[in-house]
Write a protein that binds this DNA or RNA. Structure first.
Length: 608
RNA sequence: GCCGACAUAGCUCAAUCGGCAGAGCAGCCGCCUUGUAAGCGGCAGGUUAUGGGUUCGAUUCCCAUUGUCGGCUCCA
């Protein structure tokens, strides 16, 4: 995504206001000032160190340094201790406006600051390195012998910071100005709050996120793995993960079937010429793997499915009566990702997109957008994502296609968003060069946003492949093409699902829906009868027939996050009942098998 | 890719200064026949990620490779 140029519209205005509110808040000042105090502590330890920038960020702050040696965790402890000392000594933060020349003298030994001053002086960028419109005044802040180039604001005295509510979190590498061609600096991340309880809350939240980490749960529940010998970023779906994937795919297929999609299947490789025509070898080559040679011809692994779908469209002469056409495919693509960015299921090198391409007439386009947006929302909601935010990205400076078409497409996207009632942001100029798009992001159970769906116009490929249909007038016309991935990739979607539910998937997606737990061996026959009955009704159940105590079986079922545990003993066997226990620890107790079945079926139907 | 940290049994983790690699869980075998989150005993499990080097001797020190983690950049 390019740099966001935000316009005032609905939610973004609210977000901008929130951001402004944050930047004016005491907490913001506390964090920003804590960053300065950290820089002071670091420079006391490494007088020859160079400082870069150190802003307050969401939940905390960071500061970038160029230091003579890598920092260790022990260094961090020492720095944090010294910071508390500085805070408690009650240093004042003093602001002073200086001329560029004065600043240059002050910071003559700080090359990064010098660069910032030059930026400020020429009126090109602010002290965070962001482009600005007006030439700002240059201000400096000093505290306890440490002076920093800074716009502020800051606390007036360090006593406003609670030394028990700050904590340094970790050290990481970061490029100066985020540019990989420039020096790598050491960035220390920290967090700061008004009260110690808030710090504790925040650390709990981090802990909670760690517990939900799909990589951890993926192993605990035996859902998937990656293997050294196979390769980084290549996913092995284990039986339980595979079961869930299959359930997702079945639901996906049914919904697509019922909504006018056709299913297509396409190969994993295609000749160089295909990717020349599509333009991928021009603009996407960096993400594509080296070609394989087949009888002297170069073939590339596909990074996208669209060229194949375009060829299916092209394979027959199309009438305006045939449109819209909706081709859907769970297409597995391979993209080169730099080793450092790989991350569990979220960022991989081979993944399956739930892809589709819509081809329609210009007059059908608004309805088609409405359709695809609503279809997407319905599916996402079925998976338990109720908080969905949309992002509309419009025409960038460099683009292909007729500007009038762009405008029509953007208007259709925005109208459709308005009709949907969704909150949305507009990223003006943030679209791809080939068309505007809507991205949908879902909020998970602990408030994090994940991008899943994307709905993109493409004015490029129909042109490149010379797609046309015959109109009412008997003449060829270029169709509109919409590219959409709804769940995004099955791998990432699975990762998001795992984190959203912390592994406790809704019943309809649980690999095992009920564990039948016989108390003693003599209950095994009855347990098998219950199993057979539930199987017949379509439930995924298992009997835990290990020679273990009931308590152990309950514990294991609970840890496996199986939705229903059905304990069967003498009483249940006599009365044709099962004793129901839920994975949240609730214990509704005995009920007739038929009643349990009704309950389970209603939970499944409600996608609970 | 870059910066930093890390890699020991299926999993979670020990092993002092360079001196015979160990525990819990899981697995297997047996005993117990059990009422809502771990019953008891035994057995087995290792080229210490891979390759090289230093050393009388390397899990430990050095180099390379692969992978993982935290970030940067990028992104479904």
């Amino acid at each position: 995504m390019g740099r966001a140029f935000l316009f005032n519209l609905g939610m973004e205005e609210r977000m901008a206001r929130q951001k402004e509110q944050y930047e004016g808040s005491q907490l913001y000042k506390i964090r920003h000032s804590t960053a300065h105090i950290m820089a002071q502590a670091v420079l006391e330890k490494f007088p020859e160190g160079k400082v870069a920038i150190g802003p307050a960020i969401e939940d905390g702050f960071y500061y970038d340094f160029d230091l003579p040696r890598p920092l260790t965790p022990e260094d961090l402890e020492g720095i944090e201790k010294r910071m508390r000392g500085i805070i408690q000594s009650g240093v004042n933060f003093e602001r002073k406006v200086v001329s560029a020349d004065e600043a240059k003298v002050l910071f003559r030994n700080q090359p990064f600051k010098m660069e910032l001053i030059e930026g400020l002086e020429s009126g090109e960028m602010d002290d965070d390195g962001n482009p600005i419109d007006e030439k700002p005044e240059i201000s400096i802040y000093s505290q306890g012998g440490f002076t920093d180039l800074c716009r502020g604001p800051h606390v007036t005295n360090s006593r406003e910071i609670n030394p028990a509510a700050i904590k340094l979190l970790n050290v990481a590498g970061a490029y100066w100005r985020g540019d990989e061609k420039r020096p790598m600096l050491q960035r220390i991340y920290g967090t700061a709050w008004s009260k110690p309880e808030e710090l504790k809350d925040y650390l709990c939240r981090l802990e909670e996120a760690k517990k939900r980490d799909h990589r951890k749960i993926g192993q605990e529940l035996d859902l998937y793995s990656v293997n050294d010998e196979i390769g980084a970023g290549l996913i092995l779906w284990h039986p339980k993960g595979g079961r869930i994937r299959k359930l997702i795919e079945n639901f996906w297929s049914e919904e697509h079937e019922a909504n006018g999609y056709d299913f297509v299947y396409t190969p994993h490789i295609g000749k160089a010429q295909l990717w020349e025509t599509s333009g991928h070898l021009g603009f996407y080559k960096d993400n594509m793997y080296s070609p394989v040679d087949i009888e002297g011809q170069q073939y590339f692994l596909k990074p996208m499915n669209c060229p194949f779908h375009l060829h299916i469209f092209k394979n027959s002469l199309r009438s305006y009566r045939d449109l819209p056409l909706r081709y859907a495919e769970e297409g597995t693509v391979y993209r080169y990702e730099r080793s450092g960015v790989l991350h569990g299921l979220m960022r991989v090198r081979g993944f399956t997109q739930d892809d589709a391409h819509h081809f329609c007439r210009p007059d059908q386009m608004p309805a088609e957008i409405d359709f695809v947006l609503n279809f997407s929302l319905n599916i996402l909601r079925s998976f338990g994502f109720s908080d969905i935010h949309a992002y509309l990205s419009t025409r960038p400076e460099k683009s292909v296609g007729d500007p009038a078409q762009w405008e029509a497409a953007e208007a259709a996207l925005e109208d459709s968003l308005n009709r949907s009632g969704l909150d949305y942001d507009v990223d003006r100029g943030g679209g791809a060069f080939y068309g505007p798009k809507i991205d949908l992001k879902v909020e998970d159970a602990i408030g994090r946003e994940w991008q899943l769906s994307t709905i993109q116009f493409d004015f490029n490929e129909p042109e490149r492949f010379d797609l046309y249909y015959i109109g009412e007038d008997g003449q060829p016309h270029r169709p509109y093409m919409i590219h959409r991935a709804l769940l995004g990739s099955l791998e990432r979607f699975f990762g998001v699902l795992i984190e959203h539910y912390a592994g406790a998937f809704p019943v309809w997606l649980s690999p095992t829906q009920a564990a039948i737990i016989p108390i003693a061996d003599r209950h095994l026959d009855y347990a098998r009868k219950v199993e057979a009955e539930l199987r017949k009704a379509g439930l995924r159940v298992m009997v835990d027939d290990r020679p273990e105590r009931m308590n152990a079986k309950i514990r294991d079922a609970q840890n496996q996050k199986i939705p229903y545990m059905l304990v069967v003993g003498d009483k249940e066997e006599e009365s044709g009942q099962v004793a129901l226990r839920l994975r949240n620890g609730e214990n509704p107790g005995p009920l007739l098998l038929a009643d349990f079945l009704t309950l389970a079926k209603s939970d499944i139907a409600a996608k609970k």
